[in-house]
C-alpha cells in the first residue's frame, strides 16, 4: 500500500515529513529516553502521561548499559540524544541499539539538526529524526507516529 500524509488533509504533509506504510490503531507504548538533560526527561514523562496509551518512561542512568537495559525492557521507542556529552559515540550506540534491539524503534533527537545527520542516522536504521527546535506537540506526535510504524523527520524549517 502506498500512502501519503497528504491523504489526511491539505496541510498534513507541509511541516511534518511523515511516511507511513501501515497505520495501525494506537497500541500501548513505552519510551526509553537517552538524554543528559534531566529536566527534559522529567517534563517529557509528565507530558507523555497525557497520552492514554502511554505505559511508562525508562531512564538510563549508565550509558554503558543502555543497550542491555533496552534489550531487557524492549521499549516501543528509544529517544536518543545524538549530542551526548563526554565524547560518547552516539552513532555507535545507535548502531548497537538497532542491531541488538530491532523491535525498539529509535527516534534520533538533536539540538544540531542537519541534512547530513538525517542521512547518516536514517540510513543506519533510525525510525525518525527530530530537532530539539520543534514544538512540544510535534515531538509528542512524532513519538506516537513512530509507535504506529511511521518514519518521521521533523526539522524546524
Amino acid at each position: 500500500m502506498y500512502s501519503t500524509d497528504m491523504d489526511r488533509g491539505p496541510d498534513a504533509g507541509k511541516r511534518a515529513v511523515v511516511a507511513s506504510a501501515h497505520v495501525q490503531t494506537p497500541a500501548p507504548f513505552s519510551v526509553m529516553c537517552i538524554d543528559d538533560n534531566v529536566q527534559l526527561i522529567d517534563a517529557l514523562e509528565r507530558r507523555l502521561h497525557l497520552e492514554p496509551q502511554f505505559t511508562g518512561l525508562h531512564r538510563v542512568d549508565d550509558l554503558s548499559t543502555s543497550v542491555d537495559v533496552a534489550a531487557r525492557l524492549r521499549p516501543s521507542v528509544v529517544l536518543l540524544d545524538i549530542d551526548l556529552p563526554g565524547g560518547i559515540d552516539a552513532l555507535g550506540l545507535l548502531d548497537e541499539m538497532i542491531r541488538r534491539v530491532p523491535e525498539s524503534r529509535v527516534l534520533v533527537f538533536t539540538g544540531y539538526p542537519s541534512g547530513e545527520l538525517v542521512r547518516r542516522t536514517m540510513s543506519r536504521g533510525a525510525w525518525g529524526f527530530v530537532s530539539k527546535g520543534i514544538s512540544a506537540d510535534r515531538l509528542i506526535a512524532s513519538i506516537c507516529r513512530v509507535v504506529e510504524g511511521q518514519a518521521v523527520i521533523e526539522l524546524e524549517d
Binding site: 500500500m1 502506498y2 500524509d5 504533509g13 515529513v17 511523515v18 511516511a19 507511513s20 506504510a21 541534512g115 538525517v118 542521512r119 536514517m122 540510513s123 536504521g125 533510525a126 525510525w127 525518525g128 510504524g149 511511521q150 518514519a151 518521521v152 523527520i153 526539522l155
Partner: peptide
C-alpha cells in the same frame, strides 16, 4: 513502501 525511504525522499 519503505517508511524510512519515503520520509527521507519527502524531505
Amino acid at each position: 513502501q519503505d517508511p524510512r525511504q519515503l520520509a527521507m525522499l519527502r524531505l
